[in-house]
Design a protein around this nucleic acid. Structure first.
Length: 650
DNA sequence: TTAGGGTTAG
């Protein structure tokens, strides 16, 4: 134990090395210094530095560095920098760097590289780059440390250009370099470079390296080249949790949810080990499938096996529960979190928003601001604005948008936020206002924004604006069949059958292909999927007979088939037949047959639900007293007693 | 001394 420093020599030494001891030391005047220093040995020796660093006594270690002064050697600096990296001690690391300069010590490449790593860890990328630039001699490790720093912080183009610079300097990349640089090969240009880097990897014989391979397959998956990703995965001589997770998450991120689930099961049988990232990726796939039973099973497995409840995993659980329609469970996970990130709040807000629960969105947003631990970001505002829109709270939504105009919370307005307002105005029936709003936007309207207004024109029967917007959309997206359908609905509701006919002919000429509609229902952990006029389900005959029966029954109760939903140029009887074959009707009918009376029917659809199926669902709920929960591409529809939570607007 | 997979929105 060293009581208040009285040894003046120490302090003189310190002052000689640091011109500004005030900043470094916890005292301003040697005579007023009262802090007790705990040194493991006295008088201190170079070994003491190691002990201090491993104890986390960085203040003491820096003091000792000052005492040692010009006598500091490689090992001492290495020990100190190591401790600063581990503890992300920015000021202390900077002091070590300053000391190094002041004493005129010329650090070897090794120490300079350590400084790059230190500055990266402290998120001071400019300082890290300066270290690299000032190096006369660089080796593969120093290049890689900087490339990896850029990659980790998302500076992809900087990472790639540094990699090219490295190759030009005739430095051979190693496995670390490849694994790092590949994570920067994202986006349109990234994939081209990524493929070239792949060739280089093959040439350098690193293709079978597990870190390089994982990074490589992830690069392909993120570029949407899932077959290439799978090929790289299959060629790996060994697999570990990261490579397995990378390929599962690759499928899930591309929306290939069933494939992701299948692969997870297969790899599990083959002995794959899983961790919280694997489960988070699996939950993404289950959210897409709205497979609640599976999701619950994963949740209980995670709890049973005591997988650490990292925020990422909990965020995935919130998302899974809300996308499966179980907001109560989602909120329970959210409320029990020890720590929340912006993603946790956003996932919960998006959940409420998609269920049209505007009040809950606003209350949670208020809580987020009151707690003031996590700042709202761009996604938070998207969720809140869209929550106001779906929840029918347009005035509050407009107020929040106005706040954004003044850059509240430092979130900049993006085109998607403007899109939310178009949706909000349109939904509220303020179609002309929405149209004027689009014209005044500081962005060029996208197809999504016009599409949103077109939907409003359909619901609020505004033929004039609808026609203008529809024609505009047909120019921008000539191959999107959905736009033709909505415009046809608008013309049909105005009795403009000649225009409906012209549109149909146009569609036939173009031989348009529409993404096939698909609906599914989960029963006892099994997903039953139906396509339009599906003949593949084992109980298809039963389903088809029943759906025809329902049609007759519902007609007696007032159901009128919405024939304008069918664009094929066929007679009315045929149109009715096509409508009855819609996948969501088949899934609903199957639900009605296969689940006990009085229980809810939960259906998922990959596209937006059509008007006719929406009507049909209302009759299912009214005639059979069943609650129908229908998740389409846009939102949830909770249909009870013939009324839908979406207010017939989606 | 340097490395790979992850959660919200679109």
């Amino acid at each position: 134990m060293l009581t208040p420093v009285q040894d003046m020599k120490w302090l003189q030494n310190i002052n000689c090395i640091f011109h500004c001891p005030k900043k470094l030391l916890p005292f301003t005047n040697p005579f007023t210094f009262t802090r007790q220093l705990t040194l493991p040995s006295f008088p201190p020796n170079p070994e003491t530095l190691k002990v201090l660093c491993s104890n986390g006594q960085l203040t003491e270690a820096l003091l000792l560095m000052a005492i040692i002064g010009f006598g500091m050697k490689f090992e001492g600096y290495d020990t100190l920098l190591n401790a600063c990296v581990t503890r992300k001690a920015i000021r202390e690391g900077q002091r070590v760097h300053a000391h190094l300069i002041k004493t005129g010590y010329h650090p070897p490449v090794y120490l300079r590289t350590r400084l790059i790593v230190f500055y990266n860890k402290c998120e001071c990328l400019k300082d890290a780059r300066q270290m690299l630039d000032e190096m006369c001699e660089r080796n593969v490790v120093s290049w890689t440390a900087m490339i990896s720093a850029y990659s980790q912080r998302g500076y992809c183009s900087e990472a790639l250009s540094l990699f090219v610079q490295m190759l030009r300097s005739d430095t051979q990349p190693n496995d670390f370099t490849f694994a790092s640089v590949l994570t920067s090969c994202t986006g349109a240009s990234g994939f081209g470079l990524g493929s070239q880097i792949h060739s280089l990897i093959i040439k350098s014989k690193f293709e079978s390296h597990i870190y390089v391979g994982s990074s490589l397959l992830d690069m392909y998956a993120k570029a949407g080249k899932i077959h290439e990703a799978r090929r790289v995965f299959e060629c790996l001589p060994e697999r570990d949790v990261v490579s397995c997770t990378a390929i599962i998450s690759g499928f899930a991120q591309l929306g290939l949810d069933e494939e992701a689930l299948k692969l997870f099961r297969k790899l599990q049988v083959e002995g794959m080990s899983s961790n919280y990232v694997t489960y988070a990726s699996l939950l993404t796939a289950l959210s897409g499938l709205a497979a609640l039973d599976h999701g619950k099973q994963v949740h209980s497995h995670v709890l049973r096996c005591k997988v650490p409840s990292y925020v990422v995993l909990q965020n995935s659980l919130i998302d899974m529960y809300s996308k499966c329609g179980s907001l109560v469970y989602a909120r329970r996970v959210f409320d029990n979190m020890a720590e929340r990130t912006a993603i946790s709040w956003n996932a919960m807000l998006v959940g409420y928003s998609k269920h049209g629960m505007g009040n809950e969105v606003l209350e949670l947003f208020k809580l987020m601001r009151e707690e003031n631990k996590v700042k709202p970001n761009s996604v938070t505002y998207l969720a809140v604005l869209s929550g106001c829109s779906h929840g029918g709270m347009e005035d509050r939504g407009l107020e929040i948008f106005d706040e954004m105009l003044y850059c509240k919370d430092g979130v900049e307005l993006e085109i998607e936020h403007y899109g939310c307002i178009v949706d909000l105005l349109g939904r509220a029936g303020r179609v002309e206002e929405a149209f004027k709003f689009i014209k005044k936007m500081p962005f060029e309207p996208t197809a999504a924004i016009w599409g949103s207004l077109l939907g409003a024109c359909r619901v609020h029967s505004n033929v004039d604006i609808g026609e203008f917007v529809g024609q505009r959309l047909l120019e921008i997206e000539p191959d999107n069949a959905g736009n033709y359908v909505i415009l046809c609905n608008i013309y049909a509701s105005a009795g403009r059958w000649e225009d409906v006919k012209i549109l149909r002919e146009l569609m036939n000429q173009k031989a348009m292909t529409k993404e096939p509609g698909r609906s599914w229902i989960e029963l006892d952990q099994t997903l039953h999927t139906f396509h339009a006029s599906d003949r593949s389900h084992p109980r298809r005959e039963e389903v088809f007979t029943k759906v025809r029966e329902l049609s007759v029954k519902f007609k007696e109760a007032g159901y009128v088939p919405e024939l304008s939903c069918v664009l094929h140029d066929v007679d009315e009887e045929q149109k009715e037949k096509i409508l009855l074959g819609h996948s969501e009707k088949l899934a609903m009918t199957f639900g009605l047959i296969a689940t006990p009376e009085g229980t809810s029917i939960r259906i998922m659809k990959n596209l937006r639900i059509c008007i006719d199926c929406h009507n049909f669902a209302k009759f299912v709920s009214k005639v059979y007293g069943r609650k129908v929960s229908l998740r389409d591409k846009n939102r949830f529809h909770h249909i009870v007693g013939g009324t839908c939570s979406c207010g017939d607007y989606w």
